[in-house]
Design a protein around this nucleic acid. Structure first.
Lengths: 209, 209
DNA sequence: CAGGTTACTTACTGATCGGTAAGTTAATAA
DNA sequence: TTATTAACTTACCGATCAGTAAGTAACCTG
């Protein structure tokens, strides 16, 4: 019985996207009902169809309109970092990635991609092009340059990227999927520091003690 | 019109568990219908209720009756490995874990746990107790022993475990979730070798070249 | 201050799904 | 040979869900 808000109309579309992000992340696409999202957004289920043609379209909108959130904007700083030595750059990259995965909003997207992408190739494709098309090439460019300069051992740059990001993802999964409390064991910062201490010496031509 | 098989009765229960494993892994718990499983198992949907009280019970049976599959039986060999030096043991552990994650059956379980556990804490709990209660303690025992012997640098054994397993999981996710073709880049063996070459020297007290 | 548009709501529908009840037949026991 | 049981099937039901149709009140325009 309140077909139009009396006070200045809030951005309902954003409210719905925000609510959908949370619920999709918490329950997964199939288990999430329109009513769930609507309730969280403070509207009725039918209202979703005023802004989005279907549940699938809403889901896609959540992923595409928020995808920028999950990728650190490396491009902005990449050029400045290119000449800096790896013992300076790599720890910062690792720390940045580790810190990045502590943001709640980002985690929600990661959780959705991780859980839905195996069933929905399109989702995987969106982030594949981001990861493989944007982030990895930047890393590769840096690694290649440092290898040419003789500062890093020659190795597959993709492998290098996986070695750096892998433990962070594994830590995330242990905390988020297996509910292992890393805070009382391996906290994010400790994890980042461990990666830095253990991994980076093996990548440098002259490991420093 | 064939309420009883004429030929020697096959083990329908196993057929159903097998079919359920595949379909749950492919579509996720909620999106999987009883009809899907039944079709794959060659029975009708009602037949599932002859063997399992509910869909949820069938799901649990899949996980609990197959959980042993995803954990390498480390306990059997752990005692023999305890005294062997890390530059012999660790490469083998890494290779074993990497190889372990190439088995299709195992992958199906991993995919289910990875995608369903965030919504269902019980699933996480099953594997948390396996990973944290069985595998990790064995690794910790070994690491601690080798650290005491002065062969490995002192560090949090849990961190050590994450560093070793992390890149393998990340590689798995890139292949399975993001559909990045690792075969034409970083194959499983290459990945394992990369972990061994890069990571292990940083863990040993006297890295060997 | 009328008329139209925007931004929703209420009320409904057809399809699907998990689960049940009752029937049916092959194998087995008496 | 008959009765019983094991192992299913067919047929059905109530609940739930994505999506739709039609209504309605606030705001905007002239």
């Amino acid at each position: 019985m309140a077909p139009r808000p009396k006070n200045p109309p809030p951005d309902r579309r954003q409210d719905i996207l925000e609510a959908a992000l949370q619920i999709f992340a918490a329950k997964g696409y199939t288990a999430t009902t329109n009513a769930d999202i609507a309730r969280a957004a403070g509207v009725t289920a039918a209202a979703l169809y005023y802004y989005f043609p279907s549940k699938a379209d809403l889901f896609n909108a959540v992923l595409t309109e928020r995808k920028a959130m999950i990728m650190p904007n490396l491009a902005q700083v990449a050029d400045q970092l290119l000449e800096l030595p790896p013992d300076v750059v790599l720890p910062n990259v690792i720390r940045m990635m580790a810190g990045f995965l502590t943001d709640e909003r980002t985690l929600a997207i990661v959780r959705i991609v991780l859980t839905e992408a195996p069933r929905n190739p399109e989702i995987g494709a969106i982030y594949q092009s981001q990861v493989m098309g944007e982030v990895v090439p930047l890393l590769i460019k840096y690694f290649q340059h440092q290898m040419d300069l003789g500062r890093m051992k020659p190795m597959d740059p993709r492998l290098t990227a996986i070695l750096m990001v892998g433990p962070i993802i594994a830590g995330l999964i242990m905390r988020d999927v297996l509910k292992v409390d890393l805070a009382r064991g391996v906290a994010t910062e400790t994890l980042a520091q461990g990666i830095i201490d253990t991994l980076i010496p093996g990548m440098l031509v002259q490991p420093k003690e």
